[in-house]
Design a protein around this nucleic acid. Structure first.
Lengths: 173, 173
DNA sequence: TTAAATTAAGTGAGTACTTACTTTGTTTTT
DNA sequence: AAAAACAAAGTAAGTACTCACTTAATTTAA
């Protein structure tokens, strides 16, 4: 991984996240990265290849997140951690998640299969706590996470901590 | 409003909703609507003008929704109706909402100001029920609605009614 | 009641420009 | 010297949009 190669990845993430995959041309990325346009294709074959490389790099750090919940043995702690997930996104990963959410509403459907292990973990947690509809309860938390992530990424003026506290309050955790 | 003009609006909504504003060219819309490309510009001036006309047409029917909640005097009923909102979208309006959610993650931010009256109504409802943090509680419901709408629009295989039931169960309505 | 005049609806080829991607050649590194 | 990294110019297909023009419908005038 050369320096320019990493520059392309970083610029691509920043631009794709802030303006959208289709609104950003390869020439813009090259200019932003201080690199010739052809280099993008040398390293990543095509525009979608660049996107996949960006997503792969982001997914590595993102996977660490999910794992702390999936590996949590106490069901109450797991649910609490899941609810707090959207606010615990570190600054440097905000762009990655902005990109994921943008792509979800383009033709691709990234991020869907990524959340599957989290869903399983939540179902198990609610089963252990003997909820009558553990799957619906898990999907509710997932819907909340989805909406809350949108709030954090698009409306940073809202008080996310208070909202999450209200949600946690609905469960006896 | 001539027949061809309506054809353009209908085709535009369908294509924009399913593939995104930036992914659909005016020539594609013209072909889909069985119309010459120039006619789009004769009637709607430019591509964004067409988008606005589509949104205006959809907003008329959509406004009826929000109003039943905003005008609801009983706070408990208002909250319940809000929670049930995402599943009560009629079939013929699904494309309109898909388009709204797509646009939210493109450069525009439609839909944000549309939900403002709903937010105010929810805050008042929670105040009347003497919740300690009515604003956070309202934003929580809004985040839920957002995530749940995503579920309904993107993952129709999930059992939305059960999830909503779980949510309603969290409040003593 | 026709005929002429005016407006509106519609066409499709052409505009300048942008797009993703290629090719060719030069520099840097090992 | 060989290979990898990089730059710059180029290409074909597509983009939103325009323009000269035709057709259909409506209004006005004789």
């Amino acid at each position: 991984m050369t320096e320019k190669q990493q520059n392309i990845l970083t610029s691509g993430l920043e631009l794709f996240a802030s303006e959208g995959y289709n609104n950003i041309s390869t020439s813009k990325i090259a200019r932003h990265a201080g690199v010739s346009e052809g280099l993008i294709f040398r390293h990543f074959e095509n525009k979608e290849g660049l996107l996949n490389a960006i997503l792969a790099q982001g997914a590595e750090t993102a996977a660490a997140y999910y794992s702390t919940i999936v590996l949590e043995s106490d069901p109450k702690t797991a649910i609490r951690k899941a609810i707090e997930l959207p606010m615990s996104i570190p600054r440097e990963e905000l762009n990655y998640w902005r990109l994921i959410y943008r792509l979800k509403w383009q033709q691709f459907n990234y991020g869907a299969e990524m959340a599957e292990p989290l869903r399983s973990a939540l179902i198990i947690a609610f089963q252990e706590l003997e909820y009558s509809m553990p799957e619906a309860e898990a999907d509710l938390v997932l819907a909340y996470i989805d909406g809350m992530a949108t709030t954090v990424l698009l409306h940073p003026e809202r008080n996310a901590d208070q909202i999450a506290a209200s949600m946690i309050n609905k469960y006896s955790l």
